[in-house]
Amino acid sequence: MKLTLKVWRQKNAQTKGRLETYVLDSVSKDSSFLEMLDILNEQLIADGEVPIAFDHDCREGICGACSLTINGIPHGPDRATTACQLHMRRFKDGETITIEPWRAKPFPVIKDLVTDRSAFDDIMQAGGFITARTGSAIDANEIAIPKDDSDYAMDAAACIGCGACVAACKNASAMLFTSAKVAHLNSLPQGKPEKDRRVLAMVGAMDEAGFGSCTNYGECSAVCPKEISLDMIAQMNRDYLTAKVKTFFSQKSA
């Protein structure tokens, strides 16, 4: 395949970036999208230019490192597919492809296509856990958990933390990411004791990091490589409201 690539180049966070055009010959249609970028980088090195920096690691759709906006869509055109799992057979010979980083204020560009997504870690550190010290657990089968509840928790827990949801949202909202984690832990009996604290702390951290609010566009779920459902956001809103009301009354009675 022959391709024309328009790639976002930006030396560092302080400098301005721009789209550069590159032409690439003889790309196999069986190559993955990132393998195509490898070929381009090899070509750039051979030409004495600086190769394109992009985040990637597992290349099997699970680590959540890859973060490319391809033709305006986070992770590109395929449903439920990360950029690393996207294959060149999806594109036409002679096609022009535009590749940009995640575009969201809370994810500043570090270099080229690499962004800083540490705001997600901050949200997790605020409350994305069940307090269970090593060694203090009861036998795993002491608590029976209905299969449906467990399956629902797993649907939520499938989130890979890539940030496509934020990149796709006009408001750069992190509601889908945050709600997936909240739904995972709040729907399990083990997560109940910290349910209220968790949702309040995580939503608080999310707001503090500068993510926008949710106005129900649904773009987040549409681009999510793990197809996390908008229901998670609805559940988080319910949990948040309940927790708020409870805190309000417990403060009054105190």
């Binding site: 060694g135 657990a137 036998d139 795993a140 299969k147 467990s150 928790a153 797993m154 827990a157 083990q190």
Partner: peptide
Amino acid sequence: TSIIDQCVAQGVPFAREYGGLL
């Protein structure tokens, strides 16, 4: 065996039977 206990306590959603056990 303690590993499984620990992971379940953390909220790891292992596959379960309809009876709710692992």
